[in-house]
Design a protein around this nucleic acid. Structure first.
Lengths: 184, 184
DNA sequence: ACCTGAACACCGTTCAAGT
DNA sequence: ACCTGAACACCGTTCAAGT
């Protein structure tokens, strides 16, 4: 058991993922480098490659770990506008916790087979409750996801005035709900 | 007049910007490197720095050149839903011509004082025509911009099924218009 | 005025060698 | 099994030197 001279304790995948997430949360995927990550862990850069295939795979792991943390509203018969609001707020909460990682997923959708996640089932169920015609459910789900994604991203970027983000998110959801109520 | 041995003709800013835009349109800002750009122009990498301060400034120039190409609908008294649709389509058209550059602007809003552009004036005018209360105009404009941005980005990423993008954009705008009609 | 070669401080990653 | 040093092929950018 060749133990690292500097650390005395063997490197683990958990350690690597934890440190990587911290670096990404702080400065974005761009600012994460394998060399900086290794320095953070007080380890030779090349040691990382024993636990992780490459940087892309590392980030992919992180995304896969974080995605299931989305809190989906239960199918409890609550009115669809309430469920839609709950889902939107949960989505926003998660993306605000890891905005940079979320941004990465946005631009690399291949990392998550996002049709897998329960998000799309729940969104479909809500839209059915909102009386959206069956053959438009999927399209509408994509549109709503794009809208909420756009909002969260605009917020992250700073496009939305800081003191206004809560109000603005309220406006955004109200607009969507009103739209769905009177769509067609 | 020390003329480049390889090219015989002096390097110009226009040439640089043109080649850079081509490279970005092809593979994104990420994939543009000063060294590849120089190779494209058959020039020493360092020659670029005589015409451009650095890579960031180069991309900024490009953004500032492209932004004014957005075709704003005229204030001709047309019904606000028509004007809103026209604006949304123009926005989508431009962002589809230079999706990577537009993506860059999205994540680096500092490159454009976007409140300057006529976009926000026109959007404000349309929302007033839609009877949005004066103290909510700015917030609503931000929300709509975020929505349409989100849609275009989702499209660029491939989140929207390819054969469906036109239909989906129609759905998106219909939803917004219906929402505005019945908002409050 | 315009261009360039060498150099510096960074990247991700491979590979052969160490314990 | 796990770690590492040297090396390779990339970056952006500075600076002193060339015409």
């Amino acid at each position: 058991m060749a133990v690292n001279a500097r650390r005395g304790t063997p490197l683990t995948l958990q350690e690597i993922l934890g440190a990587a997430l911290r670096l990404i949360d702080a400065g974005g995927v761009e600012s994460l480098s394998m060399r900086k990550l290794a320095a953070e862990l007080d380890v030779n850069p090349m040691s990382l490659y024993h636990h992780v295939a490459n940087k892309t795979e590392l980030v992919r792991q992180l995304c896969l770990n974080v995605a299931p943390l989305l809190q989906l509203p239960p199918d409890d018969g609550a009115p669809w506008p309430d469920q839609l609001r709950a889902l939107a707020h949960a989505y926003r909460r998660l993306t605000r916790e890891h905005p940079w990682l979320w941004r990465y997923v946005q631009s690399h959708p291949e990392v998550i087979e996002h049709r897998e996640g329960g998000l799309w089932d729940v969104l479909g169920r809500i839209l059915r409750a909102a009386a959206v015609p069956e053959d438009e459910i999927e399209r509408m789900a994509e549109v709503l996801h794009a809208f909420v994604s756009g909002f969260v991203q605009a917020e992250h970027i700073g496009h939305i005035a800081d003191e206004e983000t809560e109000l603005a998110f309220g406006t955004a959801i109200d607009l969507i709900v009103a739209g769905l109520r009177h769509y067609r």
